[in-house]
Amino acid sequence: MDLAKYGIKDPKVQDLLMWADPKKSGMTLGGATVAYFFLEKSGYTMLSLLSNALLIIVVACFLWSNLAGIIGRPPPPIPKIELKEADVRSVTDLAVAHFNKASAFVYQVLTGSDMMLSVKVGGGLWLAGKLGGLFHFFTMIYMAVLVAFTVPKVYQLKQKEIDELLAIAMVHVKKYYAVIEANVLSKLPKSAPKKEE
């Protein structure tokens, strides 16, 4: 399975997810499982965990800075981050196009100018809300890690069988989509063509 087409281009990450070194991959997945177990059992929410971690960092740096002066040691090596105007302009120029595209999408969905798109987005949000209500944030992160460590390797080992099953599933999905389109979606009003001024 070529993970580069899914955005994973680093060879070390690809080897880790494809179990090139089973010991390293197993230890990473095991570590993620142990971390998930302790985070889930701790009862902390993401916000409280992040706040407490930042509080510990602030207190530690404060104590280190003040005690370093007393005992004659250097303060903590914290870099001062400054942005260069040229770098910000290049990022802004790139972000403007993406922002405008996203804004046009949101406008199209919220105004209902494309009824089909609004229905799809509404259905996706409803499904995301239902799934989000079933799992805690840490559970969803752990499930993503678990899928990343299992699905590519299983697909590599059983590619022929999985491709056959996916082809059968796609035939059924297309058949049901055709029924939904004929009975529901075709009855929705089409978006009106835009008038040019």
Results as ranks from 00 to 15, higher is better:
V59Q: 02
I162N: 02
L55Y: 07
D114R: 06
A60Q: 09
G31P: 03
E40Y: 12
S25G: 04
A86M: 08
F149H: 00
S113C: 02
T92N: 08
K9R: 15
I141R: 00
T33L: 04
A169V: 09
W126D: 09
L185K: 02
S65N: 12
V154E: 07
I78K: 00
L29Q: 00
F138H: 06
S25L: 03
S25Q: 02
P76C: 00
M115E: 11
L39C: 07
E196W: 12
H172Y: 15
T139V: 01
L67F: 13
M1Q: 07
A104G: 11
I71A: 07
A192Y: 00
M27E: 11
K160G: 07
M27L: 15
L17H: 03
L94F: 15
Y176V: 14
T139S: 10
G133R: 03
V119D: 04
A192M: 05
S113M: 06
A128N: 09
I70M: 05
E196L: 14
K12F: 10
K174M: 14
L125F: 09
L131E: 04
G72K: 00
K190A: 05
L83F: 12
E197S: 12
K195Q: 08
E181C: 06
K190L: 03
A144Q: 09
K174R: 15
R89G: 03
L16N: 02
D21V: 08
S90Y: 04
F37L: 14
M170V: 08
Q14K: 07
I8P: 04
L188N: 01
Y6S: 13
T33I: 02
I81Q: 03
D114Q: 08
I168G: 09
G122Q: 03
L134W: 09
V147M: 13
D87Y: 06
I71W: 10
L50Q: 09
L185A: 05
L29S: 01
K12G: 10
